[in-house]
Nucleic acid binder design. Structure first.
Length: 481
RNA sequence: CGGGGCGUGGCGCAGACCGGUAGCGCGCCUGGUUUGGGACCAGGAGGUCGCGGGUUCGAGUCCCGCCGCCCCGACCA
């Protein structure tokens, strides 16, 4: 049958594949408003699972959720110089409402630092009020020039943590802690290996002292900034007068942090695991972890097969597995397979007359391989299989990332790499923005991070890959989303 | 904003160079037969051909203008 039902192969056109994979899985749709997207139930279900996992981690680290307004007085944004400058070009402004012009235009939040610090200034009086650990789940608007489903849309959903601390060390610990949470989420839930590190000044958040990030390498060997954690110093505290009385009786400004991940993670999930058939959901984030497809000819077969299938579904559901029974009539099993594979369901159980007779189901993994599983102890076997699939996805992704990583590259290597296969290039960096710019102009690659110790090369590079002067650090270069 | 591509039933496309009854595949609806990797037969529904002008007896097709979308680049999570 129709060969035209397949997706554009990744190797042929990764962008086309990405869009088609999203459409096939019914994760999202284009909207009537340019740059915006509709997140369909299949896509939103992934987001809900991400939210739940992350929210639990935020709560476990002492954070509480709150909600701040979508509209921010324009003047607020202007109180922090770098912040305005950074966000001004992509801000949407409400100038009219209620049928008349507003006295002061309202910014549609591109991020909530300013309006949150306005509140923090009211809430924080004493060192006893610190640390203040707040998170909010909300939507954000940034008027981007060029958009891409999930990866960069005009409006997107995210989570932004905002915390205030009595001293720099405590704030720094928070910034690192939340970067660690993001890393753990990426690795353990998304099965997406990431490197962590600090951003260069040119890549850091507008208004931050330092920005830390997790970066994953996608299948086209471009890097995706998947989460950021910012040390804001006392910049916003000073701009908004967030002061507190110290234990010693003095007055000081708080040290603050902010950190966020967004629906962009869904794009990362797609580009990390998808294959030419469609997306692949890691089991822990799969809205449907298991689909049961009954197979039969006669009515008697149908009855027996459906009875076993129902029992399987019940058993798995009771065991906490997210399972669906696809008992649609008039559709060939093969057609169902393709449909669920396109949606990324990690495990499929086929149940036919032969399986019923043998007391087994036939399990097909989205990561490859088919094998019978006995009905006896099925729930445990299925959970085992899901855990293995989760691990396989992570291992495969890490091997792919490592295979696309080169260390101690020379200037010529860097140029050749970025003109060719792409990937992560580790090399010495003098720290001069001039070299950063020159490299970007010549290769399109940017410094993704100055990697944390764990990711650094055993022998630190001695010289800058570009200018040859002594290196102040090792950096990771890649083309990025 | 620059470069490239594209707008024709829900989706994918043909028709355009050379103006003359709007077509194909998939999907959808009804009935029947099917069902271990994308079923088949029969019947059926569904289109302001992106929008606005113009040329013409007649425009999906030719001319002018506009709009939108996708991809690549500059800005960004």
């Amino acid at each position: 049958m129709a060969e035209n039902q397949g997706l554009t192969p990744r190797a042929q056109d990764f962008s086309a594949w990405y869009n088609e994979a999203i459409m096939r899985a019914e994760l999202a749709d284009y909207s009537p408003v340019r740059g915006c997207m509709v997140i369909r139930p299949n896509g939103y279900a992934i987001w809900e699972l991400m939210q739940r996992a992350l929210d639990d981690m935020f709560k476990a680290t002492g954070h509480r959720n709150a909600y701040f307004p979508l509209f921010i007085p324009q003047s607020f944004l202007q109180k922090e110089a770098e912040h305005v400058e950074g966000f001004a070009p992509e801000v949407a402004l409400v100038t009219h409402a209620g049928g008349k012009e507003l006295e002061e235009p309202l910014v549609v939040r591109p991020t909530s630092e300013t309006i949150i610090y306005d509140s923090f200034a009211k809430w924080i009086h004493s060192y006893r009020d610190l640390p203040l650990l707040i998170n909010q789940w909300c939507n954000i608007v940034r008027w981007e020039m060029r958009t891409r489903l999930f990866l960069r849309t005009t409006e997107f959903l995210w989570q932004e943590g905002h915390t205030a601390h009595a001293d720099e060390a405590d704030a720094e610990a928070e910034v690192r802690r939340m970067l660690g949470v993001y890393r753990r989420f990426a690795e353990e839930w998304m099965a997406m290996p990431v490197i962590t590190g600090v951003k260069t000044d040119s890549e850091k958040f507008a208004g931050a002292l330092r920005t830390y990030a997790i970066e994953g390498l996608m299948q086209d060997n471009k890097s995706l900034q998947a989460g950021t954690s910012h040390a804001l110093g006392q910049n916003f505290a000073k701009a908004f007068g967030v002061q507190f009385q110290t234990a010693a009786g003095g007055l000081d400004f708080v040290w603050s942090t902010s950190w966020g991940v967004s629906t962009r993670l869904i794009g990362g999930l797609i580009m990390t695991h998808g294959d030419d058939v469609g997306i692949i959901c890691p089991p822990r984030l799969a809205p449907t972890q298991v689909v049961v497809v009954p197979i039969y000819k006669s009515d008697t077969e149908r009855e027996a097969v459906l009875q076993v299938s129902d029992g399987v579904v019940q058993e798995l559901r009771t065991a906490g597995v997210r399972v669906e029974l696809d008992a649609r009539e008039g559709m060939k099993p093969g057609a169902k397979y393709y449909e669920w594979e396109g949606r990324g369901v990690p495990l499929r159980l086929e149940i036919g007359p032969k399986d019923v007779a043998k007391g087994q189901v036939f399990a097909a993994r989205r990561t490859g391989g088919k094998a019978p599983i006995p009905l006896e102890g099925l729930a445990v076997s299925v959970q085992h299989a899901l855990a293995e699939i989760q691990r396989t996805l992570f291992d495969t992704a890490r091997e792919r990332r490592d295979a696309a990583t080169r260390r101690d590259v020379s200037k010529d290597d860097l140029i050749a790499m970025m003109a060719g296969p792409g990937g992560f290039a580790y090399a010495g960096f003098c720290g001069d923005v001039a070299c950063e710019t020159a490299i970007k102009d010549a290769t399109k690659a940017t410094v993704r991070v100055i990697p944390d110790e764990e990711f650094r090369s055993p022998t630190p590079p001695a010289r800058c890959v570009w200018c040859g002067r002594p290196a102040t650090s090792e950096a990771v270069w890649a083309k990025a989303y």
